[in-house]
Amino acid sequence: MTIRRGFSIIETILYVAILIMIMGTMVIFLVNVVRRESKVTMVLEVNQNARFAIEKINSIIRNSKDATVPTDGGGSGSTLSLTMPTASLSPTVFAVSNGILTMQQGTGAAVPITSSAVKVSNLTFTNLVDPTAHTRTDNTWPPVACTPQQKNGIWYGVCCYQSKEYCWDPITAIFYILFMGAKLGTCLQATAAKSVIRMAITVSAPPSGVVTNDYSASTTLYATATVPRQN
């Protein structure tokens, strides 16, 4: 009768080999988990920052009075300067400094809008406004301000025809109003946009100075917001 106790050397080697295999798999798995988790966190961080930045700029533009930088008529650049209805908040300036989007209102300090976990790698504002779009079309007398006025005993008045304002004498005006669908008075669209700002923002991670070998994230968002014409 042979009673064996303990493990043979082959058994031990086998156990150790299996253990190493299992541990190896576990380690690879955990490393994978951590890496993917950081990548997902990074993507979320980038997305949240991009979305917040653009919504913030959007809301400020919609509540502003005018955009002075970039220049009207297609000027573009990475800085946006807005005149606000409240004097103490004017100008409100958006700019990028060391990869962080900042907002400065009036004489206050520049406040960061994006977090230091991401960098703003591109920010472009384009000031779209057509300076001629809302001027009156004076195809008859008088050529300048067309408030109802008299010349040679005839009253000229403002009519709105096909989205443009015309100065007409009564006979022309009556003809256009009766047969062409013109309306007496100024066109309501004269209260349209003062400026239309087109913006593009690219937010990416990792931020400057941080090196990661194998993962990065980047988001580019576009938006257009209108500066209302305030009378």
């Binding site: 297609g74 384009t126 779009a133």
Partner: peptide, 8 residues
């Protein structure tokens, strides 16, 4: 975006 006049 049209270049001149600058508008959509």
């Amino acid at each position: 975006i049209q270049a001149s006049p600058a508008e959509w």
